[in-house]
Design a binder for these strands. Structure first.
Lengths: 151, 151
DNA sequence: CCTATATGGATGTAAATGCATCTATATGGA
DNA sequence: TCCATATAGATGCATTTACATCCATATAGG
């Protein structure tokens, strides 16, 4: 049992945090297992592809993608490398900023995202959707949104 | 926007899941950064120490700890190795099961947990507690609990 | 008993991550 | 213009994680 020495976090906050960890791990493991079993790349790839697909032809700068996904800079740099090597993402120098990089999704990337979605969707339903009514899911999303910029 | 091709996961479930990922990452990064800045080991160490401290002198079998933390088996095996090497955890063969391992916390482990808690507690408050009333935190915990065994 | 299978846990190897630092370009003063 | 500092992104190196197996003991069925 935590000491509660500084008295700072309420017991309920600690419980919420611990459950956030556990719930996240349980759901994530389930989702990743499904993707992996289907011979598909990890979840992070999907997120990148989706963001880039939404961005359209204009693409996104690395740092924008980074912010959208809450990824560490070095982490994203390497993830994008792998995806570019696999041909799903194209890297081009930014015309506006000599240091910058513009990322766009390729046709192969779009195809991959399309293949991933049904598997991912089923996994989300099983790991998350199943457990909540629509109203509850909304409520959960609302609460969780407070823990970060919300976009 | 997801295709919704199989129609299976409701839009609200997908949103809840995406926010669960983002919220978790945001909070986790904040907490880990605090621990690291204080020269303390990662969060997982705290969880192990806490579970073992709760288990008392009897300790826990590896697989019990594994289940409590939702850790992969090989992952926990190595984490425990590191903690044992650092002197915070003791490994002993199980008297009941020749394959088994009984894990207990050492005095140094207890001391470490005590040093970690104030830092961790503050981080939880800032990353999570701050954003919710007590009732909201309870509500969030309740919803999240449905996503796994709840213990 | 003896064999087949299951279970607890460890481990070799490859991949991903964290951390610190590096290079290159931008930008805001003096 | 020149310098100081900030920002975008990459990278070397150490640590951690994943995946696939492996070893040893347990357990069930014949």
């Amino acid at each position: 049992m935590p000491d509660k020495s500084p008295g700072r976090p309420s017991e309920s906050a600690v419980r919420a945090w611990v459950r956030l960890e556990r719930a996240h791990r349980a759901a994530l493991d389930a989702v990743e297992a499904r993707l992996s079993k289907a011979g598909l790349p990890p979840l992070a790839w999907y997120d990148v592809l989706l963001e880039l697909e939404r961005a359209g032809k204009a693409g996104l700068r690395s740092f924008q993608l980074q912010a959208a996904m809450l990824f560490q800079q070095y982490n994203l740099s390497r993830l994008v490398d792998r995806m570019a090597a696999a041909g799903h993402v194209a890297k081009a120098p930014s015309p506006e900023d000599g240091r910058g990089l513009v990322l766009t999704i390729t046709a192969s990337g779009r195809a991959l995202r399309r293949r991933m979605w049904p598997v991912y969707a089923n996994a989300i339903e099983d790991a998350v959707g199943q457990h909540f009514s629509d109203a509850e899911a909304r409520q959960l999303a609302g609460l969780l949104g407070r823990l970060y910029g919300e976009e």
